[in-house]
């Protein structure tokens, strides 16, 4: 497996949707490739950061306005 082939399949590996035989082949490549290990580590952390950063909360005052808006629409 080349670095290109390894990086191409990282999403399935990180998401846990990769077949076991391909995962084993990828892990063999990673064991001997510093750049790909660094790529995987930072790719995985990027995913975690996005999950945290994009998990925005809807402000309470917005929920209140939504309720008012829908109540007004239902009265029409």
């Amino acid at each position: 497996m080349t670095c290109r082939e390894a990086i191409d399949v990282l999403a399935d590996y990180v998401d846990g949707t990769m077949p076991a035989d391909l995962a084993a082949e990828l892990e063999r490549h990673l064991a001997g490739c510093d750049p790909c290990r660094a790529y995987l580590a930072t790719y995985r952390t990027t995913r975690a950061l996005v999950s945290a950063a994009a998990a925005v909360e809807m402000p309470d005052e917005m929920k209140t306005r939504l309720r008012r808006f829908l109540a007004a629409q239902q009265r029409r």
Partner: peptide
């Protein structure tokens, strides 16, 4: 997106390729 050499290795400075801020 990553770029590659003809042999499939990643192209670029090694210090950048192994940079790991995780």
């Amino acid at each position: 997106l990553p770029t590659y050499l003809p042999d499939g290795h990643r192209a670029g400075e090694r210090a950048f390729l192994v940079a790991d801020w995780s």
